[in-house]
C-alpha cells in the first residue's frame, strides 16, 4: 500500500492523467465533427435543447454522439450539392501538383546536394528567404500574371503552377537534407560502371530517396489540397471550385450548413490524415535533417 504513494508512482499517475486529458482534448473536436456529419441535420448543436434545460440535458449536448445516426449528410453533399465535382477538381489539381512539384523539387535538391557551383549558397538562401514572403504581397501580382498575362483564369493549370512552385523551397530543403545522407560512393561506383548522370539520378538516387520523396509528395499534395485563397481568386466559376473553397462556402457569411460542412470535412480530411499518419516519421526526420545541417 505504501508503495503506491512513492514519488515515482505519483509522478506516473500525474503523467497518465495529463496524457489522457490531452488525448481527450485532441479527440474532442474530431468527434464533434464526426457527430455533426452523421447526425443527418444541418444544426450546429449536437442535440436539440429543451426550453429549460437541466444540467443533464446540457451534458447530453456536449457528448459528441449524434442523437440518431444517418448517412444523409454524406449522400446529400455528394449528390445534391456540387461537392463531388469540387472534390474531383481538388483531386486533379492536387494530383498534378504532386507530380510536378516532386519533379521540380527533386531535380534541384539533387543539384544543391551533389554539385558545387557558383550561386549554390545564394540559391539556397533565396529559397529560405522566400518562405518569409507574405502571401498578401504575392496575391495581386500572381493574379496579374496568371489571369492577366497567362490567361489561366478558371483553369487547373494556373493553380497547379502556383501550388507546385510555392511548395518548392520547403521541399528542396527537405530533400536536400535527405540526399546529403546518401553516400557519394554509390554514385561514384555507378560512374565507374559507365552510368550517365541521368541514369544515376533516376535509377539510383530517386529510388534510394523514396521516403523523402514520399514526404515531399505528401507536402505538395497538401499544398494543393488545402489551399483556399488563391483557389477562390483564380476559380470564379462555381463548377470549378476546389473542395476547400466549397467547404468555406457551406459555412460562410450567408449560409450555415454545418451538416454539409462536417460531412465534407470528413471526406476531405480522411485521405490526408491517413497519408500523414503513414508518413509522419519520415516527415520528422526530413524536417530535422534538412533544418539542422543547413
Amino acid at each position: 500500500m505504501n508503495k503506491l504513494f512513492e514519488t515515482e508512482n505519483i509522478l506516473l499517475i500525474i503523467r497518465y492523467i495529463f496524457v489522457i486529458g490531452m488525448t481527450i482534448l485532441s479527440l474532442y473536436p474530431i468527434f464533434w465533427v464526426l457527430s455533426l456529419a452523421f447526425s443527418g441535420s444541418q444544426s450546429l448543436a449536437i442535440t436539440e435543447l429543451p426550453v429549460d434545460p437541466s444540467s443533464w440535458d446540457r451534458l447530453r449536448a456536449i457528448i459528441p454522439w449524434p442523437e440518431n445516426f444517418s448517412l444523409q449528410n454524406f449522400i446529400d453533399v455528394l449528390t445534391e450539392q456540387q461537392f463531388g465535382r469540387w472534390l474531383l477538381n481538388s483531386a486533379i489539381v492536387a494530383g498534378i501538383t504532386t507530380v510536378f512539384g516532386v519533379f521540380l523539387a527533386s531535380t534541384s535538391a539533387y543539384a544543391f546536394s551533389r554539385f558545387r557551383f557558383p550561386g549554390r549558397g545564394f540559391g539556397m538562401m533565396t529559397f529560405l528567404v522566400s518562405q518569409m514572403f507574405p502571401g498578401t504581397l504575392m496575391l495581386i501580382p500572381l493574379y496579374v500574371i496568371i489571369v492577366g498575362w497567362l490567361n489561366l483564369e478558371n483553369s487547373y493549370i494556373g493553380l497547379v503552377l502556383v501550388y507546385s512552385v510555392t511548395a518548392i523551397p520547403f521541399c528542396v530543403w527537405m530533400l536536400k537534407g535527405y540526399f546529403d545522407t546518401i553516400p557519394k560512393e554509390i554514385e561514384e561506383s555507378a560512374i565507374m560502371d559507365g552510368a550517365s548522370q541521368a541514369v544515376i539520378f533516376w535509377q539510383i538516387i530517386v529510388p534510394l530517396a523514396k521516403p523523402a520523396i514520399a514526404v515531399t509528395a505528401l507536402f505538395s499534395f497538401m499544398a494543393g489540397w488545402n489551399e483556399f485563397i488563391l483557389a477562390s481568386i483564380f476559380m470564379s466559376e462555381e463548377q470549378l471550385y476546389t473542395a476547400p473553397v466549397g467547404l468555406k462556402f457551406f459555412v460562410g457569411e450567408h449560409s450555415s450548413m454545418w451538416g454539409y460542412f462536417a460531412a465534407g470535412s470528413v471526406i476531405v480530411s480522411a485521405p490526408v490524415v491517413f497519408l500523414f499518419l503513414y508518413l509522419q516519421k519520415y516527415l520528422i526526420s526530413g524536417l530535422t535533417s534538412g533544418g539542422v545541417k543547413g
Binding site: 531535380t107 534541384s108 543539384a111 522566400s130 500574371i145 512552385v165
Partner: peptide, 15 residues
C-alpha cells in the same frame, strides 16, 4: 538540374 525549379521560382515567386 536547378533550372526548372529556378525558372518557376523566378516567374511565380521572385517576380
Amino acid at each position: 538540374y536547378v533550372m526548372p525549379a529556378m525558372l518557376g521560382m523566378l516567374v511565380l515567386v521572385f517576380f
